[in-house]
Amino acid sequence: MSAFSRIAQSPGLAVPVLLLWTLGWALASAEEPADDVRKGRALYVSQQCWQCHGHEGQGGVAGNRIAPTRYPYEAFARLVRFTNLMPAYSPKVLSDEQLRLIYAYVRSMPEPPPLEEIPELDFD
């Protein structure tokens, strides 16, 4: 299911999240400080994001792909705190600052190689 349709299914979230998404799109390409990325990586592991989203945020049956992220921070944070199928992380277990660092890490993840450069995926 796409993020859009999932958000649209939670009526309370649809409007604010979509607004933030559109507004934040332009901002979501800045470079993240290396130190934040390092700390964020550690939190991504200790907060168990990898369990469902994979060590590279690649996603799978247990959670969708979250990296590289298309979301501005506000939308990303909302999706972690107010969830549909994912366990909700309250600020008590994951502070705003920690979540921001995780976000920095997720944003720093590079695009994978293009299909043309992966002969093993040349199925057809």
Binding site: G54, H55, G59, R65, P112, L121, F123
Partner: peptide, 10 residues
């Protein structure tokens, strides 16, 4: 096929 690329070198 596109999704399979993510985490390819992980």
């Amino acid at each position: 096929l596109d999704e399979a690329r993510y985490g390819w070198n992980a």
